[in-house]
Design a protein around this nucleic acid. Structure first.
Lengths: 254, 254
DNA sequence: CAGTGGTCTAGACCACATT
DNA sequence: ATGTGGTCTAGACCACTGT
């Protein structure tokens, strides 16, 4: 194999991780779009000057992070929000008894506002920065169960229109991806219990002060930039938030 | 390499997964105990009759599931619970502002009861089976914030005494491991919002019907057997539940 | 059929930890 | 110095997909 020179920034970094970063750069630069296949493993090996094993280790990590998706016999594809799996990767509310179901989304309002202090902090933008604010109501099992209040930094979503949001036949995250080239790679959620405010109570058709699950979600893209802040208010009479964790066991020595 | 016959159950299963299962069997049989090293990779290659690459792929999955831990230059160890790690792994409540802190656990009561219908279903035991019931109150920042109600199947924890639980200077999961050979490998949590019951309100010093975060946690060991059912009632004035999602690592079937 | 990813091998050398 | 895990190679063959 020809000698291939390692870039300066890659000193001390395993080769497969350097390859991984190069693939991520290509993705960030839009060389391969969501839903499209990336070149075959052999091609990528030639391009980066590494063996299959090394390339596969890089792609392994990217598939584990849901950035790429492999299909045996077909190829490796850039993850796209059109797939159902993505929907449920980020939507954690399910019936206490019975099967998972898709929420029925009802658009209520889109407005442009100056972000408040709390929102600025969570979004990582300047105080008073412009944001798009979207209000949705979600139905599950034929009943209004969730109120979503969404804040989007104007700098990622310039020109977003009410029509785009109201008329879409896809998930919001797919809209972000298709229309604004914003890929959600990771989310973080903080939960607490609150009594329903008058506004939320009216939207859900319940009494004020009814205990609700309050979820503050931040959605991140490349470089951990926050692209969405979402407050969800969930009526948990018949639904619940589901999470599972693998253990963090460690050996004594560490 | 000598011909090594594959076991019947392994038909259609990749070799590395068969090796993984054999390692898990050895762990379940107590061949290597928590905190101890497992044999070196080369030894395991000989034992299972596979190449390093294949063995490493098996061990890769086991480390990803936190069942084994690798230390370069030292060896590969069976994961073990230690006090500090408990926080990061299973305890998801943290202050809304400020640093993570250790909860101050106050033991309230241990009793033996017959499990109710809901508990039987969640624990996967027969209706009316005997369980150990433990009631704890947890303090954070000098204030009572959480009430924990814990149910343990008698068949895993026969002979558990109030003294063991009250006098312990470790986490409960470490007690399960050290005294009852029960390793918690995975947990699942379901959250909803409820109004405080009279009992819980009294323990937390709050008004009845105050909105609380209610967490139902199931803790699993090998073969996904449920070894603990825990109801946590959390006052979320100053604390919240934290979760983050990046890799939904499930592949089977797809 | 040709092309893709999936698995597996039998080595090699490197980085790290312990003796 | 020895033994450990960490990385990497250059092949091979298998299983699956589409034409």
């Amino acid at each position: 194999m020809d000698q291939v020179f390692r870039s300066d920034v890659a000193l001390g970094m395993p080769l497969y991780r350097e390859v991984k970063h190069k693939i991520m750069e290509a993705l960030r630069d839009g060389e391969w779009k969501p839903g499209e296949p990336v070149p075959a493993e052999k091609r990528l090996c030639e391009r980066f000057g590494v063996s299959v094993g090394t390339l596969r280790k890089a792609v392994d990590e990217l598939t584990a992070e849901n950035i790429l998706i492999r299909h045996q016999g077909r190829g490796t594809f850039v993850a796209s929000h059109s797939q159902d799996r993505y929907m449920f990767g980020f939507f954690h509310i399910c019936p206490k008894t019975g099967q998972k179901e898709y929420p029925k989304v009802e658009f209520i309002r889109l407005s442009r506002e100056k972000v408040d202090a709390d929102g600025a902090k969570r979004l990582g933008v300047a105080r008073g920065a412009k944001v798009v604010r979207i209000l949705n109501r979600l139905g599950l099992g034929g009943r209004a169960v969730i109120v979503d209040e969404i804040f989007l930094p104007e700098r990622f979503f310039a020109g977003m229109s009410e029509e785009q949001v109201r008329e879409r036949r896809t998930t919001l995250y797919q809209l972000y991806q298709d229309e604004f080239d914003v890929a959600v790679l990771r989310t973080e959620e903080r939960l607490d219990a609150v009594g329903a405010s008058a506004d939320v109570a009216a939207l859900l058709g319940i009494a004020e002060d009814t205990p609700l699950l309050h979820i503050v979600r931040r959605a991140m893209t490349f470089r951990d930039e926050v692209v969405e802040l979402r407050h969800s208010y969930v009526l948990t009479d018949n639904h619940e938030y589901f999470a599972h964790e693998e253990s963090t066991l460690r050996t004594p020595g560490e």
